[in-house]
Design a protein around this nucleic acid. Structure first.
Lengths: 335, 335
DNA sequence: CTGAAAGCGCTTACAG
DNA sequence: CTGAAAGCGCTTACAG
């Protein structure tokens, strides 16, 4: 592979000059500039980004740690992040934490070793030593969707509380009184926010939220299945279940199907996060939608602000309820 | 951030010695070794991967170009690739081509600039200059799922022909005679394979495949919608449609819903690629499933073989039909 | 406007 | 068993 020396030799200039034209520095005579450019294209020269990074101490690369690639919400987020980053001249390296703290920390270390310019993270549950150290090291960092209490970096997220409250009202209006929830990992901010909003909305409606109706999940499919199974072991199973993410909603449906039961007759279902398949599910799933692409764009904007020496603030967008039929919305028409 | 010099100073040795213990070279006295290790952990030293890569000319990183991150098939593939790579000590950088040749080529160039050790790609449609040049440059490379005629590197894929043939038989057995297909981009190998298998199976059954029943799609949702709409503009719309990927099947369902029509009564539907939501769709979608995780694992095995100087062969796995209800399988029971 | 030289943080023959 | 030194491929003050 041709190096900068080959180009310099071919163009009859020094490597310094080649570097200057490649980096668009002004003050290179037009003809030497064009000689360099010809040499570059004749040799199909491409600068070695590794060498450049070592020298300039910047990689033009952002790291993105997502909780789970198999979750369409994060995949949509990743796509938006990559688009926004690319349009600003950055690449992004994605690390999939698979909701595991150890794997997440492995990725943040690997990313830092590679000297990424900034880190975007939707943290997994638990006390992340790697993330705390990263923050301490001063690398530009912003949280998306989830965050960690006590690490003081901007967070870009959607506040789902109003939508959850609206959902509870919706459920209540449909006649459901025994409402249950399936949470994410205990220490994730999004899960806590959704649980708290759910709890306080139930209180407003004078509805109880017994411990047994708080199913401990982990944002992954299997846990939705397990919790649903436990619900049916109760003397009084809930009438409606709110899964705090779409994968656990899948788990609920898997378990119901296994038991030959149906949504919403045997159990109403609503999910946090709207995905493309929901309108086609049997029955179409009532969901709370986040402005996912905007979340990604704003997160990249904040992070690149930091990377480029500007300041950045947190941003909070909002989510909204999309009623469909999985909560018994069409009871009247079906009867 | 501490550098190797700081560690050397603290341990009272040369940087060469630090490097040796870090790289596990034998022949370092036990006590100097442990002094180095203490210095490393006291300073929380982490080697600069950029500098190391420049020196060793290897990055322990694999590039993966996928056609579309929004497609659960590729997301599942990416996950398997990352797992397999990590267990072999490699990181992976994913580039999402979004089915666009230009974006794909942008990513392969960026990846090569970063001096990845090997490239895994599921190519987009069209003549990729970047990919041809990459192959010429001799970088270890393997195709997954799709490949490009004339670029001689191993390809790891599933042969879907038998399953497509089986699908046609299935459709025929269900009484469907007017069968249509929605293709991917014209020059993609997977699309061609699926179309050819479909065409030849129809011939076996003595069924025609009029031009109008070959809908030109691009593997993305919107094209499934558009083609379906065109089908309904025909004097005799097809009775059954085979979408050659899951996203276009989504498009078909979107369009049908828009028109107030139903699967399978108004149009039977089958899709290539099985995804987790299909069993819950109304009605559950008949699909052809690929051994996606294995595809990912085998692709990484082949690529790392190449990277590490061994030889690698192509591997062809197989796909299979999963009949559900979207082709009218339960007609008898419903009537 | 251009070149010679130093240096980014490592690894690795080469000596001893 | 360990160190001094060269060098990976760039960029960038510093001179001229």
């Amino acid at each position: 592979m041709a190096g900068i020396k080959d180009v310099a030799a071919r163009a009859g200039v020094s490597v310094a000059t080649v570097s200057r034209v490649l980096n668009g520095h002004s003050g290179v005579r037009a003809d030497t500039r064009s000689r360099v450019l010809s040499a570059v294209s004749e040799l199909r020269y491409r600068p070695n980004a590794v060498a450049r990074s070592l020298r300039t101490d910047q990689t033009r690369t952002l790291g993105l740690i997502i909780s789970d690639v198999l979750n369409p919400f994060f995949t949509e987020l990743a796509r938006a992040v990559e688009d926004a980053a690319r349009s600003r001249g950055y690449s992004v390296i994605i690390g999939n934490a698979d909701e595991r703290l150890a794997l997440q920390d492995h990725h943040v270390r690997t990313l830092l070793d590679r000297r990424i310019d900034g880190l975007l993270v939707s943290p997994a549950e638990g006390d992340s030593v790697a993330l705390r150290e990263a923050a301490l090291s001063g690398i530009p960092m912003v949280f998306v969707d989830r965050w960690i209490e006590g690490i003081d970096v901007p967070v870009v997220r959607a506040d789902g509380r109003a939508a959850v409250r609206e959902l509870v009202g919706h459920l209540y209006g449909l006649g459901h009184r025994r409402l249950a929830i399936i949470t994410g990992p205990v220490a994730t901010t999004t899960s806590n926010e959704r649980v708290e909003a759910f709890r306080s909305a139930l209180r407003e409606y004078g509805l109880p939220l017994p411990e047994a109706y708080i199913g401990q999940g982990d944002f992954q499919t299997e846990s939705g299945r397990r919790v649903t199974s436990a619900f049916f072991g109760l003397d009084e199973p809930p009438e409606a279940v709110f899964a705090t993410d779409n994968l656990m909603a899948l788990g609920v449906m898997d378990e119901l199907r296994l038991r030959g039961l149906r949504v919403p007759d045997d159990m109403a279902l609503a999910a946090f996060d709207d995905i493309a398949w929901f309108p086609h599910i049997d029955p179409p799933v009532t969901a709370i939608a986040q402005p996912t692409p905007e979340l990604g764009h704003r997160a990249v904007a904040a992070l690149t602000d930091l990377v480029e020496g500007r300041s950045a603030d947190s941003v909070t967008l909002s989510a909204h309820l999309i009623p469909r039929r999985s909560c018994g919305e069409d009871e009247r028409s079906r009867r």
